[in-house]
Design a protein around this nucleic acid. Structure first.
Lengths: 153, 153
DNA sequence: ACATATACTTGATTGTCTCAAGCATTACTC
DNA sequence: GAGTAATGCTTGAGACAATCAAGTATATGT
């Protein structure tokens, strides 16, 4: 299962299309991660480290407990994909930095995660704009529903 | 984290919109599940049991090992959301059936998973059709990429 | 009947995630 | 400035998800 799936009984065609799309996206993401011997969670964290970040920051962005991040970073660190430096400004906190190895692995990962690019490639530029606009409009409608807003914006 | 997130560095606006949408969808799904004291995996399985199904069938649809399903069904069964009957036609296999309790809980779950409905509600019917068409067109483009097709179609 | 395949279970192991407690450091307050 | 919070992170324990290897029971095929 690995990847969350939406309701099987979709009332409208648009709902069905949304579910299919999300499902395909999630599966593709997981496949790309697994291919690089990363779990989804690890790929997720690694992807956010384009610049150094604290543990707290990561936990907030991903909406999970800090101790969860501790574990994930520990595993990434043991593979030398990431390093933990004490923040000189606040010695309680660590700055997590992606190593060159980590940079390279993540670049590979992103390159292999062709889903979004492939999806876009089959749309004209006009259609791409339309899709983006429709998705945003649909999303905007949802504001106010529980856990709907991006916690990592 | 709980919910997979896409790449943070999206090259195009449309990619960004896709990611935001998928992310919001996944988070909403997880929230709805948690609200009903279901894990994402459990909600996922429960949702497929509109009619009886075998374990193997579920495992194939969800793309995971059969032993994984065994565990998940066991947990659902212990809460009386599901029952396992031996299939009279093939006594190796079990038919998993949702109990009335399971039906009720899943109905509640779906009602609380307002994301797709809310998203749609903010689009005109024309826009809904456009969105569905664009999503399908984008998806079609992706066929042939690894793990891109729905394994549970 | 015998061998093979299928459906599921069990046990072991890894990873995710949460909670409760704890340590170190920083910020607040008197 | 000393004492008390609050913050950032870690540790330990426990639940669940997921996979693999091995085992049992039933079906299928020769």
């Amino acid at each position: 299962m690995a990847v969350p799936s939406g309701p099987v009984t979709a009332s409208t065609d648009a709902e069905r299309a949304m579910f299919d799309f999300v499902d395909a996206y999630d599966r593709a993401y997981e496949t790309a991660a697994t291919t690089h011997e990363l779990s989804v969670a690890q790929a997720c964290v690694l992807g956010r480290l384009t610049d150094p970040r604290g543990m707290r920051e990561l936990a907030d962005e991903l909406g999970c407990d800090a101790s969860n991040i501790t574990q994930i970073i520990a595993r990434l660190e043991s593979r030398d994909l990431v390093q933990r430096h004490t923040n000189p400004n606040d010695r309680r906190s660590r700055q997590i930095v992606r190593t060159p190895t980590g940079d390279a692995l993540y670049a590979d990962f992103e390159a292999s995660f062709a889903f979004a690019r492939a999806a876009i490639a089959n749309l004209s530029t006009t259609e791409q704009d339309q899709l983006a606009a429709l998705l945003r409009k649909a999303l905007g409608a949802a504001d106010g529903w529980p856990a709907m807003g991006r916690r990592d914006a």
